[in-house]
Design a protein around this nucleic acid. Structure first.
Lengths: 252, 252
DNA sequence: GGTTGGCGTTGATCTGGATCAAACCGAGGC
DNA sequence: GCCTCGGTTTGATCCAGATCAACGCCAACC
């Protein structure tokens, strides 16, 4: 039942804050902009956007958002990947998802964060203080609209995950996960046959509500059945996408 | 693993559409308004709000939103309660939540509904076609802001449920559920010691990712331990709130 | 080249909750 | 009053996945 107890007391980031004497055009050249809610702000107002935020980097393994801490700011990831998770007092962990480039974190009505965010690799982010974000949203309703769209999509994804966690078997969970990852990693292109799994088996287990051992066993079983191939622990090739998709939906 | 297979083919509502020659002040006298996103529209614009929607009633046991159907409208519940759920092809059901007065349903970026909504009792609702809602939101940014707040809160609740479904034991799930229901049923007042459970054991099971038998057994166990009392199947009294809350958080 | 340490895999065993089965109970209906 | 029927409870048994325990692999480091 318990998972990596080490995680019960997450390492808090010693935040590497970049002093914000940034060139005002910083946002204009941001790689993450096409993937983020920021693209709702028109190009001419990029300076306004840049002025509302500061940037920072979280080192691998450190938390830059901690569950229960005062939610005085919002984060927009511009590089790297973070795991978002909640912990029970005894160390049991549930990963809510993995946040990549363009992902917005910390939009909460409550005054404290409801989950933690831990950098998997080097995570670059923009930080908006609450009042400044509020001011931005008031000035740019299109950004608020975009934020609503993004939040709605996350809610839909969360509900899909509730179905997975509440009613699917281990095989179905892994199949669903692999299908979703293959779509996700493919970016804008068609879903790839081969793709990388950057997270550990422990992360996958805590995302799917299973144990490390069950994840490992189930993957090798899917391999023996000819549905997938596993060139190395971090790579997967889908051999029978239809079969995997049927499995993910609970058929057979 | 399977749950009530009867539900695999939900009864579609023969919708009782009320022809909309409504008095334009209908929204002004709406009981649900204080609980709904509609209260973001100023009182002087009630006529505009009323003109954008039609009303309807769903009979108990009928679906007024069906997963996979074209999402051409949004619903706002003005009376009654509905269960929101997703199904797997073999009939396994996961309930995402129970929607009461003021609850907004069907806000999706996707073109189809991602879950079904089934009336538990007589459900009265307002129906907004997509384009009309879009127009309303454009005219009243405060409504869009309110909608973002509500959606964010739902996302937070969904993530809490993911923790429950992925990592909590049956006892912890029931304890969490009872605490949440006691808060919810209390309305604006302090959480009540006694409250009603309007849904069936089957609904509770499909909401918590358990079976009917486990729900029943776990409730009687909590009763024997002196944490709760069960005057009748539909009523619960909390005898030891602290104990229940500790259990819900995974302590002991 | 040996050691350490962090994953990942595999095997043996255990168990919480599912499944199968039966009895109970209260609200209608006649 | 008796019967039916849906929902609920309780008991016996089963099993998918957890837990406990080795072991393998490989990269980092002396």
């Amino acid at each position: 039942m318990t998972t990596n107890a080490r995680l019960a007391t997450p390492v808090m980031a010693a935040p590497v804050m970049v002093p914000d004497h940034r060139h005002l055009g910083a946002c204009a050249h941001c790689d993450a902009r096409p993937h983020s809610v920021c693209n709702a702000v028109p190009a001419v107002d990029m300076a306004r956007l840049a002025a509302a935020s500061t940037t920072g980097i979280a080192q691998p393994g450190t938390c830059f958002v901690e569950e229960g801490a005062k939610a005085d700011a919002f984060f927009n990831i511009t590089a790297g990947t973070a795991r978002l998770f909640k912990l029970l007092p005894d160390g049991r962990r549930q990963i809510m998802g993995f946040a990549g480039v363009g992902h917005f974190i910390g939009l909460a009505v409550s005054s404290t964060f409801t989950f933690s965010a831990e950098a998997i690799d080097h995570v670059h982010y923009c930080r908006f203080s609450r009042p400044r974000l509020r001011a931005l949203l008031d000035d740019f309703p299109a950004m608020e609209q975009k934020l609503l769209e993004v939040t709605s999509s996350e809610l839909v994804a969360a509900q899909e995950q509730m179905l997975l966690l509440g009613r699917k078997t281990a095989r179905e969970r892994l199949a669903s996960f692999l299908i979703a990852e293959s779509r996700h990693n493919a970016g804008c292109h068609l879903p790839r046959r081969q793709f990388a799994l950057p997270m550990t088996r422990g992360d996958i287990a805590d995302y799917l509500g299973l144990t490390i051992e069950t994840v490992s066993r189930t993957l090798t079983r899917l391999r023996h059945e000819g549905l997938i191939e596993i060139p190395s622990a971090g790579d997967v090739v889908i051999l029978d996408r239809d079969g995997l998709e049927r499995l993910a939906e609970g058929l057979t």
